[in-house]
Design a protein around this nucleic acid. Sequence first.
DNA 1: AGATCTTCCTGTTGGC
DNA 2: TGCCAACAGGAAGATC
Length: 285
Amino acid sequence: MPELPEVEVVRAGLQRHVLGRTIAGVDVLHPRPVRRDARGSTGFVAALVGQRIDAVRRRGKYFWLALGSGDALLGHLGMSGQMLLKDPGSEDERHLRVRFALEAAAVDGPVEMRFVDQRMFGGLLVSTGGAELPSEIAHIARDPIDPEFDDDLFVSRARRRTSGIKRLLLDQTLISGVGNIYADEALWRSRLHGERPGDRLTGPQLRALLGHVRDVMGAALEQGGTSFDALYVNVNGESGYFDRSLDAYGQEGRPCGRCSTPIRRVAFMNRSSFFCPRCQRPPRR
DNA sequence: AGATCTTCCTGTTGGC
DNA sequence: TGCCAACAGGAAGATC
């Protein structure tokens, strides 16, 4: 389930391997991932072929390739999407959705960039709304590792909202890049219950929470960053972080790392929340 | 506008 | 063995 750290690993991997290359051909094998492109599969392909990749950028969980034309190839991995780099002619993945043939670079030969997505919550589109920040994601807030992220603005906006703090962390117009896993981890570290309303939290509590969001993401980024370099094809949204370092997410029944109380799981927005019922006391109703 | 809920997808798992 | 419900969940869109 790619969140900001996983997408950043993908962005860095793409920057290293596809920057400066030209797109020689595009093959859309399933229409679903291109559903948000205003001009459909045909227009999608036409806007990409012959374009040089000038930059690889990211905001929150979105990434994009800035093209020579001024357009951008904008992507989101959803929950199962991958961007893989493979030698041309390698066997197709079972859930291969879009194939991009990239021309040879100075030192390397041609390569295929492949969008693979089992569940197809992810998607790709060509944005004509600017390569600096595609218009389709103008509503997405800056993410917490963006140097221009405004802590004061986040705190003041969150303190005017009545929703629970976990909902606010997942609201990509307030802060981007945080998903279910890192929300639960940051709340556990902050000893905050996700249902605590934003307008009942103090500035210092919210600032500390931001610090924990950055810490947990930073730790994941370190591990993902190292695993990527070792394996050329691992431009895929797996950071390897899930196995060891989680204190709350997916830990139902396991003892809390601070107080040994069993971690609990509750239903939340068609998914799950994990928390320590002792360290993270629910608000009075 | 803010809060909340539904919907889109497929593969795996577990209960009966 | 087979069937079906539950589950994984980001974010757009609808509703109030």
